[in-house]
């Protein structure tokens, strides 16, 4: 795959430039869609339910940081899952390393994430965000976790999707849940306390979700510094993040194996 870097670059460029062809707003949609989503969540969680229940200071920024990471995950995961079927014509007729498709899809999602990250940076800066090196490292680590997580899952679901289009619908559900099963709309304290009442392992499980780590890393990176609140970042965030990162690497390997396994049949089944 590394030998086909030039092809990868062209595939990414194609993905980027054809995405919003023939739409007047073009890449503006990259802002409009998340902003709409953001406005709704902000209105409901912040205004109606009262500042995210947990009384989160600077809730606007808290919410934005979380939504931007989860969006990256959703985009990358969905694109990668559909990538093989979307490139049916090629897969069927020409021999080329098929991993290129999910990988290109994830890169396109990443490029798509950049303008949103820019908005987030500007908003944070307006709120007095002056990043420290540690905070920047947290942001990078969070991004890395999300990208790897989406790539690994995307390869598995993308491969399965060739034979069973159910995978696409399943991914839709995961997308919906992703926002709720990570501390985007509320503070992790709320849920972990509740879960711990049921069983300590449940709270741990929640924290082990790599997305939870990534969201909290983004909160730490963008939001934490702008608050005077003494609300701590989750205990052992670093440990959970590193475990999450390791899990993502394992997932990528599993993804590769599954992908290889199914790849032999792509051309005839797709």
């Amino acid at each position: 795959m590394f030998r086909r870097r030039y092809l990868l670059r062209l595939l990414v460029r194609k993905g980027v430039s054809t995405r919003y062809r023939n739409s007047a707003l073009g890449w503006g949609w990259s802002y409009v869609k998340p902003l709409t989503q953001y406005a709704i969540y902000f209105f409901i969680m912040g205004t109606i339910l009262g500042r995210g229940r947990g009384g989160i200071e600077n809730f606007a920024l808290y919410l934005l940081a979380g939504i931007v990471v989860v969006n990256l995950f959703n985009e990358a995961f969905t694109n990668a899952t559909k990538s093989i079927v979307d490139n049916k014509a090629l897969v069927k007729k020409i021999y080329l390393p098929r991993e290129l498709f999910p990988v290109a899809a994830v890169i396109v999602a990443f490029i798509h994430f950049l303008p949103q990250a820019a908005v987030l940076t500007i908003v944070a800066a307006l709120m007095g965000w002056v990043p420290t090196a540690l905070e920047l490292a947290a942001i990078l680590l969070g991004t890395l976790i999300v990208v790897l997580f989406a790539t690994g899952l995307g390869m598995i679901f993308g491969a399965v999707n060739v034979s069973f289009r159910d995978a696409e619908n399943f991914v839709e559900i995961i997308r919906m849940l992703a926002t709720w099963f990570s501390p985007v709309l509320y503070s992790y304290v709320l849920i972990v306390d509740k879960l711990d009442q049921v069983g300590h392992w449940l709270g741990t499980l929640y924290m082990l979700n790599p997305l939870t780590s990534a969201v909290e890393l983004f909160h730490y990176g963008f939001w934490y510094g702008t608050t005077t609140d003494s609300r701590p970042t989750p205990p052992h965030l670093l440990v959970f993040s590193l475990v999450g990162l390791a899990a993502c690497f394992v997932l990528i390997i599993v993804g590769q194996v599954v992908f290889r396994r199914f790849e032999r049949r792509f051309a005839q089944d797709v």
Partner: peptide, 25 residues
């Protein structure tokens, strides 16, 4: 393999872009 020419062509891209993309494919 000239199994089916144009398999990798994308209608929204220009001829030039398609030449590059397909030759790379």
């Amino acid at each position: 393999a000239l199994i089916e020419v144009g398999a990798g062509f994308h209608p929204e891209l220009s001829g030039r872009e398609n030449v590059y993309l397909n030759a790379a494919i």
